[in-house]
Simulated scan of single mutants.
Amino acid sequence: MFYASTYRQLQPLFVACSLAAAMVAPIAHAQTATAPASVAAPASNLGPGVIAKVNNVAITEAQLLRAVQQSGLPDSLNLRAALKSQLVSRELFRQEAEKKHIYDNRPEVKQAMQEAKDAAITQLYLRDAIKPAPVTEQQVQAQFDSIVASLGDKEYKSRLIQVGDAATAADVLAKLKAGADFGQLAQQVSLAQNKVRGGELDWISFKTPAQEGHTQNLPLPIAQALAGLPVGGLTPTPVNWNNTYFILKLEQVRPTQVPKYDDVKAVLRQQQEATALEKATIAVVSNLVKQAKIEQ
Results as ranks from 00 to 15, higher is better:
residue 48 P to H: 10
residue 49 G to K: 07
residue 51 I to L: 13
residue 52 A to K: 08
residue 52 A to H: 10
residue 57 V to E: 14
residue 58 A to K: 14
residue 58 A to P: 02
residue 59 I to E: 08
residue 59 I to M: 04
residue 59 I to G: 11
residue 59 I to V: 13
residue 59 I to R: 08
residue 59 I to F: 15
residue 59 I to A: 04
residue 60 T to C: 08
residue 61 E to C: 05
residue 62 A to D: 13
residue 62 A to K: 11
residue 63 Q to S: 12
residue 64 L to R: 06
residue 65 L to Q: 05
residue 66 R to G: 05
residue 66 R to P: 00
residue 67 A to S: 04
residue 69 Q to M: 12
residue 69 Q to H: 13
residue 70 Q to M: 06
residue 70 Q to C: 01
residue 70 Q to T: 02
residue 71 S to Q: 07
residue 71 S to R: 07
residue 72 G to E: 04
residue 73 L to I: 00
residue 76 S to L: 03
residue 77 L to Q: 11
residue 77 L to D: 11
residue 78 N to F: 05
residue 79 L to I: 07
residue 80 R to I: 01
residue 80 R to C: 00
residue 80 R to T: 00
residue 81 A to Q: 15
residue 81 A to T: 09
residue 82 A to N: 09
residue 82 A to P: 00
residue 82 A to T: 12
residue 84 K to S: 13
residue 84 K to P: 00
residue 84 K to Q: 06
residue 84 K to T: 06
residue 85 S to H: 04
residue 85 S to C: 05
residue 89 S to K: 09
residue 89 S to C: 03
residue 90 R to I: 05
residue 90 R to A: 08
residue 90 R to Q: 15
residue 91 E to Q: 09
residue 92 L to N: 08
residue 93 F to D: 13
residue 94 R to L: 11
residue 96 E to V: 10
residue 97 A to R: 14
residue 98 E to M: 12
residue 98 E to H: 14
residue 99 K to D: 03
residue 102 I to C: 08
residue 102 I to T: 10
residue 103 Y to D: 03
residue 103 Y to A: 06
residue 104 D to S: 11
residue 106 R to W: 12
residue 106 R to P: 01
residue 109 V to C: 11
residue 110 K to R: 13
residue 111 Q to R: 15
residue 111 Q to I: 06
residue 112 A to K: 08
residue 112 A to L: 13
residue 113 M to F: 12
residue 116 A to K: 14
residue 119 A to F: 12
residue 119 A to I: 08
residue 119 A to K: 15
residue 119 A to M: 10
residue 120 A to I: 06
residue 121 I to T: 12
residue 121 I to Y: 13
residue 122 T to I: 10
residue 123 Q to F: 03
residue 124 L to Q: 13
residue 124 L to I: 09
residue 125 Y to W: 04
residue 125 Y to G: 00
residue 126 L to N: 00
residue 127 R to T: 02
residue 128 D to T: 12
residue 130 I to V: 13
residue 130 I to G: 00
residue 131 K to H: 05
residue 131 K to N: 04
residue 132 P to W: 08
residue 132 P to G: 04
residue 135 V to S: 04
residue 136 T to Q: 09
residue 137 E to C: 03
residue 138 Q to Y: 04
residue 140 V to W: 03
residue 140 V to N: 02
residue 141 Q to S: 07
residue 141 Q to V: 08
residue 141 Q to D: 10
residue 141 Q to H: 09
residue 142 A to W: 02
residue 143 Q to P: 01
residue 144 F to V: 03
residue 147 I to L: 12
residue 148 V to M: 11
residue 149 A to M: 06
residue 150 S to G: 00
residue 151 L to K: 04
residue 151 L to H: 05
residue 151 L to N: 05
residue 155 E to T: 02
residue 155 E to Y: 03
residue 155 E to L: 08
residue 157 K to V: 03
residue 157 K to E: 09
residue 157 K to M: 09
